[in-house]
Design a protein around this nucleic acid. Sequence first.
DNA 1: GAGTGCCTACTCGGATATCAACTGTCCGAGTCTGTTGGG
DNA 2: CCCAACAGACTCGGACAGTTGATATCCGAGTAGGCACTC
Lengths: 158, 158
Amino acid sequence: MSGGVEWALHCCVVLTSVEEPVPAARLAQLHDVSPSYLAKQLQALSRADLVRSVQGKAGGYVLTRSPARITVLDVVEAVDGPGPAFVCTEIRQRGPLAAPPESCPAPCAISRAMADAETAWRDALRSVSVADLARNVSSDSGPGALKGISTWLTTAEG
Amino acid sequence: MSGGVEWALHCCVVLTSVEEPVPAARLAQLHDVSPSYLAKQLQALSRADLVRSVQGKAGGYVLTRSPARITVLDVVEAVDGPGPAFVCTEIRQRGPLAAPPESCPAPCAISRAMADAETAWRDALRSVSVADLARNVSSDSGPGALKGISTWLTTAEG
DNA sequence: GAGTGCCTACTCGGATATCAACTGTCCGAGTCTGTTGGG
DNA sequence: CCCAACAGACTCGGACAGTTGATATCCGAGTAGGCACTC
């Protein structure tokens, strides 16, 4: 799994607490990560229409909709790609004892088992929204944590 | 996800139908895959104690226990490694507004959500055994399919 | 003083190097089988 | 005829290159805001 998923999720959570656009560079120095690489992840979120990019002097990124309507699965698929992690090569149709294609209308049992597991994984990620994450962060570190980050993001200090 | 997982699972399924050891080279030409690379995957299965390797002239690989007691998760973890796919970097403890370590006794909300999803994925893979896979293959391609593979594996034809 | 045009500075977006992991390959260590020689 | 020792060949196991995707970076296109000039 790509490590940029964690960055993107944290960015979505902090964007929950602010209404003005936040530049990628500021998000990068907040998390102390590479600004250029974080920009790439945010571009992926923008392509997936999870955040809206505004250009110009006071530009940056803003969530396109309510955090309650953005699931963790949305972010993961935006960054890591929507394709399944396990891809069936249909090796049962290869080799000297290959199964004839007309007898393979459905994916093989192995492919089905892996697909079912990935479906369970996706369902779990879909059941958690970015708003849930922000709520949990508040109950962990106190309600003032996100508020402090919000004010730091919107002020021009170093 | 490593593509070798598919090869390893197919090998485990075909090993279900045979009692004698089967060399890696024969499994490779059955599936028409690289013999050397398949050998690497089988070595991983051997390290995980899922298959037993016997050396010498009539050597090869055999399952160490009943296929009903080998789960798909066992094979996946043996080949891809047991570590979780998502690793939390604890970036909340970095940067100018880093959370103090004493206020982070538990993993962060993001890490928990990802861990829960992976647990669901693991549970799904753990609930399917190699015996289940073999049974499904038989209902898909007919009971004769595995039998034919078994006889082909144990005979010395080209 | 108000409006307009321009200029600057800041933003994103995609094209570009660097690196690690997966993929693929090879040769040496070890062992079982079959044969052969002797008793 | 039976046993034991040997040779042979086949097996696995770990060490060694090639290639694709992830990581990290840079510079150009575009736009909003601010300023100066004009009316």
